[in-house]
């Protein structure tokens, strides 16, 4: 069975960067969202196995998404991929239940290491 992947970033380039970095096993069933609201609509509608989430976005940002998932009891592994590398932001994100924090631009070996640590590889 294929893994349902959701990539949420307001930048088209950033979405493609993540998409291109995914191992083959995760790249067959990928959906894209361009802000937090679009992502939440998808997440409420169907079951997603892994979410790659940007933080700084219009409408609903990454923290807003994490908070909504928590409030609504939607559980799934979230990998935050962000340019906002402040240590406090990293701990906020992990405090809201994200599995990992990856800094932009995304590094392939770091991504694979986190995927491996969480059983996706």
């Amino acid at each position: 069975m294929s893994t349902n992947v959701l990539i949420c970033d307001d930048s088209n380039l950033a979405r493609k960067q993540v998409l291109r970095s995914l191992p083959e096993s995760l790249s067959t069933d990928v959906q894209l969202a361009k802000d937090g609201q679009e992502a939440l609509e998808i997440l409420r509608r169907q079951s997603i196995d892994i979410l790659f989430l940007d933080l700084t976005m219009p409408i609903i940002d990454g923290l807003g998404v994490l908070q909504a998932l928590k409030d609504e009891g939607i559980q799934l592994p979230v990998f935050v991929i962000s340019a906002d590398v402040q240590p406090e932001m990293q701990s906020r994100v992990l405090g809201l239940g994200a599995k990992a924090f990856l800094r932009k631009p995304i590094a392939l070996d770091t991504l694979n290491e986190h995927l491996r640590n969480h059983g996706f590889l």
């Binding site: 930048s11 088209n12 380039l13 950033a14 700084t56 340019a83 906002d84 590398v85």
Partner: peptide, 15 residues
């Protein structure tokens, strides 16, 4: 879009 993303990454580290 590409320029915006380059700027986002730069701004993140500046912040």
């Amino acid at each position: 879009d590409c320029l915006q993303e380059l700027i986002n990454v730069a701004m993140g580290q500046a912040s």
